[in-house]
Design a protein around this nucleic acid. Structure first.
Lengths: 150, 150
DNA sequence: TCTATTATGGATACTAACATCCACGATATA
DNA sequence: TATATCGTGGATGTTAGTATCCATAATAGA
């Protein structure tokens, strides 16, 4: 059963993209991030803790506190986040669920699938938090303009 | 959260591939199919019922009974099975989970993702039950030969 | 008709993912 | 020092997917 990434990981990506925006004056508060990103706060908070642990975010306690990006959004890719949240080697399973499937003993979809997985990870690696933040911001602020140009 | 297909669907595909083999003398019994395919019988039986309902299998009760393919394995693709088990339009969600994401108002991964989804469904559509059955059979019977040639 | 064999379908249990809540520690400010 | 604001982390609840079991219906053969 191939899953690109979990819901929790999706929340992480959207939250990080929101924080990368950096329009907010000071630190980004969990409540604000979640409201803007449209993700469930109580659940996402858990994800934030994990993102602090894995070095994507820095947490600041107390009044005026919140989260700050601990990495450069222009050089942090979506794939970085996925690997941190889901663990590496998440994309190594056979499509058919065959334990013995590999390059030497492939199932009939093996090579097609390896190629596709490569393209997917490339796509995730080609997109930075900065790119995401710009795109999400454009969606929110310039919806009409964007539609006009289509 | 993008999932290509569920575990139950994977069992369906593997079971149908096993039945497509057609080496067994008479009908294929559920117990035998599951043992050969290496899938949990109690659970897969439920899937078989659904496959009967959706016209992939014909069930035969009583002694000497079992399942028979109700469609030509050479013209039934993996995608046919996926669509029947998971429902159509399973691959239409935005990668970022954005409700408003579409061609006119795309997220920054939208077009890349649409293209990749197309390639994935093409791959599933290019593979028939017959192809799968041949490949799985080869794996079981000629493991040594296959390894030798690598 | 009786019996053994096969699928059916309903009930139930298990598990992981998803989600929520709250007491607590940290800290800036008054 | 007192208080309000913020993240932490532990407990718990909810749901969907996965898995198992068993009484039942169907049917072939004795």
């Amino acid at each position: 059963m191939f899953c690109l990434y979990s819901k929790g990981c999706e929340y992480a990506i959207r939250a990080l993209a929101e924080i990368s925006d950096g329009k907010a004056a000071g630190n980004a508060r969990a409540a604000d991030i979640c409201r803007k990103a449209g993700i469930p706060e109580a659940y996402a908070r858990k994800t934030f803790q994990a993102l602090v642990q894995s070095g994507f975010l820095k947490a600041v306690s107390g009044p005026g506190g919140g989260y700050v990006l601990a990495r450069d959004p222009k050089s942090t890719t979506v794939m970085d986040v996925v690997e941190a949240v889901e663990g590496k080697g998440n994309y190594s399973q056979c499509l058919m669920g065959l334990a013995a499937c590999n390059d030497r003993n492939p199932c009939s979809l093996h090579f097609t699938w390896v190629k596709l997985k490569g393209q997917m990870t490339d796509a995730l690696r080609s997109q930075t938090l900065w790119d995401l933040s710009r795109s999400m911001n454009r969606k929110q602020g310039n919806a009409k303009k964007t539609t006009r140009s289509a």
